[in-house]
């Protein structure tokens, strides 16, 4: 491990890989940095695909953009990571 301090991240989960990838592309295109990660079981939704990790400060804007694009968020949560 790097020894760097842990940071809090928001995580958004999606019902399908397609929606997750569409969300990733949309958010990146609109300047919201996101990183695909294995969907954490801790966020619920029984997800076994990918989720998007983002800065907690970007969540509200991201959710607004996703709702407008009809890309529904299936689960929400937080994780700590480096």
């Amino acid at each position: 491990m790097s020894g760097r301090p842990l940071r809090s991240f928001a995580v958004l989960g999606f019902a399908t890989t397609h929606t997750a990838l569409a969300a990733e592309q949309l958010l990146k295109d609109l300047g919201v940095p996101v990183t695909p990660i294995p969907a954490p079981t801790s966020i619920g939704g029984a997800l076994c695909g990918i989720a998007l990790r983002l800065d907690p400060g970007d969540v509200e804007r991201a959710e607004t953009l996703l709702e407008r694009a009809e890309l529904p968020v299936a689960a929400r949560g937080e994780i700590e990571d480096v």
């Binding site: 989960g13 999606f14 019902a15 399908t16 969907a39 029984a46 076994c48 695909g49």
Partner: peptide, 18 residues
């Protein structure tokens, strides 16, 4: 299996394309 959400559900997801 679809690899996406709702893996614990006995039913197929309602979301397309999965």
């Amino acid at each position: 299996g679809t690899g996406g959400g709702g893996s614990e559900s006995p039913d197929m997801p309602i979301e397309r394309p999965d």
